[in-house]
Nucleic acid binder design. Sequence first.
DNA 1: GCGACAG
DNA 2: ATCTTGTCGC
Length: 226
Amino acid sequence: MSGASASKINFPFKRAEEIQRHLSKMIITRDCFPHGIRYIAGIDVAYSGDLSYGAAAVLEYKTMKLIEKKISSQRMILPYVPTFLAFRELPAAVAAARKLKTKPDIFMVDGHGLAHPRRFGFACHFGLALKAPTIGVAKNLLCGEVKDSKGFWKPVIDEGEVIGAAVFTGMSSKPVYVSVGHKVSLETAVRIVLECARRYRIPEPIRLAHIAAEKAKREGASHLNC
DNA sequence: GCGACAG
DNA sequence: ATCTTGTCGC
């Protein structure tokens, strides 16, 4: 009997689905932040043993340079179960974001937002928890399909509705999947992701948060106050 | 029952 | 996601 399946047994999946469908109705898909973005924060989580390391990296929007980063280590309770990622990553991600001294105008999270079977992915859950503008950026599709069209991005359709966009950043032929997290429109989310993409497929905020989380994992939970 | 399935 | 060294390429 594996530890992962053991912890999965007690988790109320049916109740969690109801919560996701209910909270999805509260997601705002309009731009609710200043026109001139000054700071943007990337969010990512890494794992080691029974610990999770959440990283929040704040970048100056104009230069895409790191100006602040915070880490939070949490006891990890749940295994990874597709469509319930937020329940596993939220604690460390939110804790790291709350440690930030700089208040970002918008967050970019590693995972889907509305591009989720119940329209409430990790990015939506995070955005609602912080009541802040949030964009979801994932490396793979969870549901829906990419509709062919011209340009730097193609709409992702599921059950007849546009739930996100496949965005071609940098020179990679493989896109990243962008969707609304909270308080931002899909069009604006796509524009911001393109503006944050420098020389890599993964946009800078998430790329730097990923590096910070990996570094924290390597160094352990001992010196998180450095 | 079978296949798919963010990180 | 994670387990892991060197190595091929821009």
